[in-house]
Design a protein around this nucleic acid. Structure first.
Lengths: 157, 157
DNA sequence: GCCACCTTACTCGGATAAGGACTGTCCGAGTCGCTAAGG
DNA sequence: CCTTAGCGACTCGGACAGTCCTTATCCGAGTAAGGTGGC
C-alpha cells in the first residue's frame, strides 16, 4: 500500500495557495517546490476537478483556492488526488470455492471487509480533522514564524 | 492508494488455518477459496517469513498457525503481506526550491508527514484491535453458526 | 484624448510514452511416509 | 516378528514472464492584458 507522490505535492501547493492573494501559475508552484513543472500540472488538474482550486487562464492567470484554508481538509486533498475508491476491495471470496456461501445469504458485507472499512474510516477521520490552516500554523511554529512571511514575500516578487 | 489482493487472501487463509488441527497444503487452501494455487503460495510464503504460519514439508505437510487465532491480529497479516513501509513517504519538499529550509533546521518531521503518520497510526490501531478469532466469531454470526462446522468437516475429509 | 481592434504572450487542459510494481506461473530442492527386504 | 534401508510421492521455496497503474512529458486550445491605429 502506498500513496501517490501527488498527495504530498498537492498538500504543499494548498499551503502555498493559502498564502497567496492572486492566482499562482503552476510553473511558479513547481519552481517553488523544486519539482517537475509538467507533472505537477497534472495533479493540479485533479485538484481543480475536485473543486478545491479554481484555475484562471491568461497572462495573470493561475490557481487559487476556492475556499479558505480552514475549510479545506487534508482528506479533501487526498481524495482529490487518489480518488474515493477504498483501499481494500472485497472480491467476495466467501462466495467462491466448494463451500461458497450463496449470494442470497450474503446480506451484510464480509466480516473482513467490515474490519478493513472500519480501519479506513478511522484513517479518513484523522485526515478530515486536519485542515490546511492547521498545517500552516504547524509550519509557522516549526520555523519560528519565519516561513509564511518569506513565502508571501516570494509570491509578491 | 490500494491494498494488494494478497491481503484478502491472507486473512481468509488465517481464518481457515485457525480451524485446522493438522497442516493444510497451499493447494488445498487455494481450492477452498477458489483462487490461483501458485499465486496463493507466493503470499503464504510472505506469511511464513513474517512468522505467522509455519510450513511443514513432506506428504502430510502444509501450513499451520504458529499462534492461537486470538493472538494474531489483522494488522499482523497486513504487515506481512504489504510490508511495514508507511503509505505516505515524505520527500522533504520543504528542503527544496529557492526557499528551502536548511536540513539543520528540520529537526522535527514535516508537519504534513506528522498528520499523515497520525492517520496511519489510527488505521493500524484499528487493524490491531481485530484478531483472527474476532473475525471467526463474526463469520459464525453471519452464517448462523453454519460456516465453521462445515469448514472443519471439509478439512477433515 | 478616447475607443475599438488586433497582436502577443501567457495560461491551462487533455492526449501521449516510459518505468516500476502487482499479478500470475513455472520448475527444482527438500522432506516425510510407505514399502520391502534382511536379520 | 522387528529393524532398517531405499523408494516414491508430496510439499514448499525461490526464480521467471505478463499486465496494469504510477510517473513523466509534450503540444494544442483558450484567454486576458497590452499596444496600436483610427475616430
Amino acid at each position: 500500500m502506498k500513496l501517490s507522490q501527488g498527495v504530498e505535492w498537492g498538500v504543499h501547493c494548498c499551503l502555498v495557495l493559502g498564502q497567496a492573494t492572486a492566482p499562482v501559475p503552476a510553473a511558479r508552484l513547481a519552481v517553488y517546490h523544486g519539482v517537475s513543472q509538467t507533472y505537477l500540472a497534472k495533479h493540479l488538474q485533479a485538484l481543480a476537478r475536485a473543486g478545491l482550486v479554481r484555475s484562471t487562464q491568461g497572462q495573470v492567470g493561475g490557481y487559487e483556492l476556492t475556499r479558505e484554508p480552514g475549510a479545506i481538509t487534508v482528506l479533501d486533498v487526498v481524495s482529490a488526488i487518489e480518488g474515493d475508491a477504498p483501499a481494500f476491495r472485497c472480491t467476495e471470496i466467501r462466495q467462491r470455492g466448494p463451500l461458497g456461501t450463496p449470494p442470497e445469504r450474503c446480506l451484510r458485507p464480509c466480516a473482513i471487509a467490515r474490519a478493513m472499512a472500519a480501519a479506513e474510516h478511522a484513517w479518513r477521520e484523522a485526515l478530515r480533522a486536519v485542515t490546511i490552516a492547521d498545517l500552516t500554523e504547524d509550519v509557522q511554529e516549526d520555523t519560528d514564524g519565519a516561513a509564511m512571511p518569506r513565502l508571501r514575500a516570494w509570491l509578491a516578487a
